[in-house]
Computed example of a mutant assay.
Amino acid sequence: MDKPQPIKRDKYLQPLSHDHHHGLMLCWKINKGHKKGVSAERIMAYAKHFFETQLEQHFREEEELLFPLIGMKDEGVMHAMDGHKRLRVLFFDEENLDNACQLIAKELKAHIRFEERTLFNVIQEKAGAEELLKMNQQLHSRPAEQSLNTWEDPFWA
């Protein structure tokens, strides 16, 4: 069986795809912590920090800058928006932290895979290069890679 070919991401979407990589790392860290028996409180503290410092900005940029390029009524955009809404709730679920952590890891991974494998491809096909450039110019600066790894409790290590 042939290996799937890597997706050629438009250069103007690459900062958002890079964010997705960091989101997948969050999922990995949550799963690693869970396997090591780390308390849900420690894991969720990091997850909330990640959400507040990285993910919320990423969601806003997609919702305000990227998704309008193909229309908010697009089926894929509506699916992504539903995912954002669900994830926002999970990151602040105080009722069952262990369940919330596991759902964040599962749902965020699926959400990112959908955006990367499906929605971003549609956007690349439908949006013009000029529109993607304009969207890219409005993105906020990305944090340095090292700033994502400065959490004082690296429970995943």
Rank of each mutant, 00 (worst) to 15 (best):
L108P: 06
E115V: 12
L132H: 08
K134G: 02
R117D: 14
M135H: 03
I123G: 06
V89P: 01
V89N: 02
A144W: 06
S147A: 15
K109R: 11
F120D: 04
A105K: 03
R117P: 06
L139A: 04
G128F: 10
Q137C: 03
L87S: 03
L139Q: 04
N99K: 10
L139F: 09
F114L: 09
A127V: 08
L119A: 07
R113A: 15
M135R: 03
N136H: 11
T118D: 13
V122Y: 10
V122N: 02
L103N: 11
H111Q: 09
S147Y: 09
L108R: 04
L103M: 11
R88A: 06
D93M: 00
F120T: 01
H111N: 09
K109L: 13
N121A: 13
L119E: 06
G128W: 07
S141V: 03
K126I: 14
R142P: 00
L133V: 10
T118A: 13
A110N: 13
Q137D: 05
V122C: 07
K109F: 14
R113C: 13
H111S: 10
H140L: 12
E94V: 03
V89D: 04
S141T: 03
Q102T: 10
R117I: 08
N121F: 15
Q146W: 15
I112W: 08
A100Y: 04
G128H: 07
E145F: 13
E145H: 10
T118V: 15
Q102Y: 00
A129E: 15
T118R: 08
L148T: 06
L119T: 06
L87D: 02
L103A: 09
R88E: 06
L97R: 00
A144Y: 08
F91P: 02
L139R: 01
N96K: 04
F114S: 05
N136A: 07
S147V: 09
A129R: 01
A144F: 11
F91T: 01
L90M: 00
A110D: 15
A105C: 11
K85G: 01
E145W: 11
C101D: 07
Q102K: 11
I112Y: 09
Q102W: 00
Q146L: 12
K126R: 15
K134S: 06
L148D: 08
V122W: 08
L139W: 02
L90S: 00
Q102C: 10
K109N: 14
L97T: 02
A129C: 08
S141H: 05
N96I: 04
N96V: 05
K109Q: 14
Q124I: 06
H111W: 14
N136T: 01
E145S: 09
V122A: 09
K85F: 07
L103W: 00
L148E: 09
I104A: 08
F114N: 04
L139I: 05
G128R: 05
A110T: 12
L87F: 00
E125C: 12
R117Y: 15
E145N: 05
L90T: 00
